[in-house]
């Protein structure tokens, strides 16, 4: 085995996929498990989620989102299609670049949503920062809807990522 460009490209892809599994796994945990379960949990047990589990999950969630994007951008540069993909394949009309480009843009939007909408609003909703009683449900709603947007985007995003490598 040689530690050449092919190996390092594989290695970065492996880190990209590891990070991505953690990110999207936690996103789906929030949307498929935690949020729908909250109304079924007795009030006196809710702090176990809001004070312990959710903050820990959000820590891994936001940092894995960032590392997925960083390793993904490095990977695209190593594969030589970063610019073509970011221009959605419109510069060279290559379907593979269009596919990976759509996936990259959706991933970038999702990462922006995590760091600049979901995380700041979750801090308010979970009581990690002081806000008025009026502001708290609004922040929870904003975080929840944005998390749903990311869940929706994760479906075409993963199609784009996998199809770029296997169909085009």
């Amino acid at each position: 085995m040689e530690f050449d460009h092919t190996w390092w490209t594989f290695f970065i892809r492996w880190l990209h996929v590891l990070s991505g599994f953690m990110w999207i796994g936690l996103l789906w945990y929030f949307n498929f498990v935690q949020t729908p379960s909250m109304p079924k949990i007795p009030d006196e047990q809710k702090p176990a989620i809001s004070k312990v589990i959710a903050p820990a999950a959000l820590f891994w969630f936001r940092w894995s989102a960032l590392s997925t994007i960083i390793f993904g951008l490095i990977l695209a540069q190593m594969n030589g299609y970063l610019t073509e993909a970011l221009s959605l394949g419109l510069s060279d009309h290559v379907a593979k670049h269009a596919a990976i480009g759509f996936g990259m843009w959706m991933g970038l939007i999702m990462m922006f949503n995590v760091w600049f909408i979901i995380w700041p609003n979750q801090k308010k909703a979970l009581g990690m920062v002081e806000v008025s009683d009026e502001e708290r449900p609004k922040a929870a709603r904003r975080a929840g809807v944005t998390s749903r947007v990311n869940t929706m985007l994760s479906i075409p995003m993963l199609y784009a990522m996998v199809s770029a490598q296997n169909l085009y």
Partner: peptide, 30 residues
């Protein structure tokens, strides 16, 4: 009604977006 208010609406919206995206990819790559 916002389709993102329910999990099933979220998934169906994601699948609709996927179909639109595939059409665009094939149009760009043609």
């Amino acid at each position: 009604m916002n389709p993102l208010d329910s999990l099933s609406g979220t998934i169906i919206s994601g699948l609709v977006f996927t179909v639109i995206m595939v059409v665009l990819i094939n149009a760009i790559g043609a």
